[in-house]
Design a protein around this nucleic acid. Structure first.
Lengths: 200, 200, 200, 200
DNA sequence: AATGAATGAGTTTTCATTCAT
DNA sequence: GATGAATGAAAACTCATTCAT
């Protein structure tokens, strides 16, 4: 009798092995054999579960996107005010699971790589649009639509920027500092708007 | 025409071909044959000039760094006040030569890839340190050292963030919007500090 | 139902699946997984029953030979004159069970493939020798030994030729036309001999 | 400077190696490595020239068809009467170049294999149609259209049948016997028609 | 200097076979 | 007996690199 749930577990372990392999060797240097070895299975099994290297990579990217979405949603569930929602989104992007060297490395690899892979590109675009719309919606409580859009874009840019810079510095991550930098940006921008309004 | 100079021209044309190839195919999918074809030369010649694929890629990355450095230095030469220096640095990062799709794509590819390549990593670190120190120095005119360091890091993060987001959107680049976003960050932060100081 | 007979049924169904798989995918492209799926059993079971792919294929070939032999023997049982025997042999080769696209395809595949597989080659040779000897024996009633041998060879060649040509035309089979073509050959040859004899 | 004509020579030598490999190992067991070794080149070169195993096999089949067509055309060029044309077609099919064990083996392999490969199937069909039309046309001098068509089909069947039987017998080929068998069929059929006509 | 044919090591992929359940 | 997950050997294919011309 086959072990129920074995397949899901194997797939997850292979995806984790893929993330780790990208972290250690770099996206362009990983091989199926490395991933299989890292997951402690034979090379053939990876194909059995994912069909091809491309499909394994695509599945890994989807996994990362899903996990990020979940982290953000969890934070949003506890947020009550628009300001808290914004903080939840920011914190979600730097949550414990997300802001680890291996995950950061894999994220950026897919981010950059997706530029030349339509299906991956589409996934990222959908995620980015949702993030932008969510940020914009909550910023609308503090400023006009156009400004909200602009600051949302700035916030997203800074989140991505902090991530990419973290990838390069092989040192340990500092979630608090990362969050503080982005929060500071948002806070200062909101404050500027509030000040401007109270002047009039 | 003397053969001297011919070599430099060939090298440059191969480097440009490499940048374009990365843009079109992605870092992990480029081949020497593609690059050679794109540059209109034989495959063997690339080795003759660069020795190996790794060396060609390293040379391409050095070229990008040099060009970026040159763009910034040119702007800085005309800047007089610290504030103008900051703007020059920002503008340099989004100068006409730098903020093109192919260059952005290549930049990010090297950026991400350098994580697993020591020699490239070192180059990027040196550049990043110089940028940070330069920004910090000029921000010191407006705020204490620790704040200057923090805002310098924020500025660099936002520059990188704008870049990476541009790579994903296949559309045309908007230098003005990119500059405005980063300038807004710096300006608002400086204003906040000035306001705080004038309060006391 | 007793388990005895179950095994024979499973084996037969796997052999039929093999024949169908050869027909649909071609001898060089069939896999054990396909055959197992087609027979509605697990991949492991095929090995359990046949030991290996080669043995399954050998069993399939033996099955085809046996069925053909049976079809011919059944016809011969009803034949009384030498001429009727010849017709029975021809008709047996194009009997309903034999002259179906899937069976034809499998036959030819084994026919051609046996060239490089000693054990299969031996089986075919035995069958061919029996066919030749049978045809020759019955043709002896109408002509000298040497001519009988030659016309037997011609008859066998034409049977094989009609078969191979049928394999290529994906259309439906026309047993009557196939039989008529071969019968015409035999009839004309016999007639020529009879005419020659009556001349003298 | 590259050797002019080297490419054509290489391709031809690889195609010959393919034919020989099919003869020796059988269609379903040949590997690119075997073919390369037999041609005395590296494995990579085969891909360089043909792109893939499938394309190499397709090129080999086209080569065999072309050679057969050439052999027949050469014979036809010397034929003057319809009867001579028929003999030329038959002789062409068993010409020295065609009726060799390796070529026969390869021919049959492709013949059978083409059933599941559309592009190959199409090529064979075109050739078969041309052969049938050519035979029919020349037989029309001796018999009505319908009979001519039937005998043309019979002739083609016998040619194919002689070929397939030759493939199985690993012995040396006997071109004269093969030709005689088919000629006998045609001759007897024509004679029968002539006799029938003179009766009336 | 320049070419591009040729190599061969390395990678993905396939699949018969095994084996724990 | 029966399953199908897992293996690993063998195959196709890719491509940086070399080298004769």
């Amino acid at each position: 009798m086959p072990k129920v749930g074995m397949e899901a577990e194997r797939r997850r372990s292979l995806i984790h092995a893929t993330v780790d392999a990208i972290h250690e060797r770099g996206y362009s240097d990983i091989t199926m054999a490395q991933i299989a070895k890292r997951a402690g299975v034979s090379g053939g099994l990876v194909h059995h579960y994912f069909g091809s290297k491309d499909l394994l990579l695509a599945a890994t990217m989807r996994y990362l996107l899903t996990e990020l979405g979940r982290a953000i949603r969890e934070g949003l569930a506890k947020a009550e005010t628009p300001r808290e929602c914004i903080s939840a989104i920011i914190a979600g992007n730097f949550s414990h699971d997300q802001f680890r060297p291996a995950v950061i490395a894999a994220w950026l690899a897919f981010y950059v790589q997706s530029r030349t892979t339509d299906s991956n590109s589409r996934l990222l675009r959908i995620y980015a649009a949702r993030l932008a719309s969510n940020l914009t919606f909550n910023l609308r409580s503090f400023m006009p639509r156009d400004d909200a859009r602009r600051i949302a874009e700035g916030t997203a840019s800074m989140i991505d920027g902090v991530w990419i810079r973290q990838a390069l510095s092989d040192g340990s991550t500092d979630r608090q500092a990362a969050i503080a930098l982005v929060e500071d940006y948002v806070e200062t921008q909101i404050a500027a708007h509030v000040a401007r309004n109270s002047e009039t």
